[in-house]
Amino acid sequence: METNFSINYENKVVKVTLSGSLDAKRAPALADEIKKLIGKDIEKIVFFAKDLEYISSAGLRVIIFSKQKIGIDIKLYMVGATEGVLDVIKMSGIDNIMEITDTYEE
């Protein structure tokens, strides 16, 4: 199962669209892309997770890392995540650092 992700930065908002598996093999590529944003003026990072089927601790670490590295004041959003993915997010306690929503309005 391949993860394809896309990442877009515009008007202080980073949009990351996730699909497939975000696991130990695939998370590093996303972390690399997020590292490129360090130092930019960012208010929000929005993860679109409707098509994300599986996330492991390696994937969760990228989300935690994005807040740690880009700025502790930025807002994180997780949009449209499936029940299984949300379970893992809640188990790990990182629902505390993000807003979980069904849809995202500009």
Binding site: I64, F65, M91, S92, G93, N96, I97
Partner: peptide, 22 residues
């Protein structure tokens, strides 16, 4: 400590914590 703020959280132990949970 999963309740630690994101900037203080120790990243490495999260995986093993999840193994215990699931």
């Amino acid at each position: 400590d999963i309740n630690a703020p994101a900037d203080e959280r120790e990243i490495g132990g999260l995986g093993i914590f999840l193994v215990r949970k699931v």
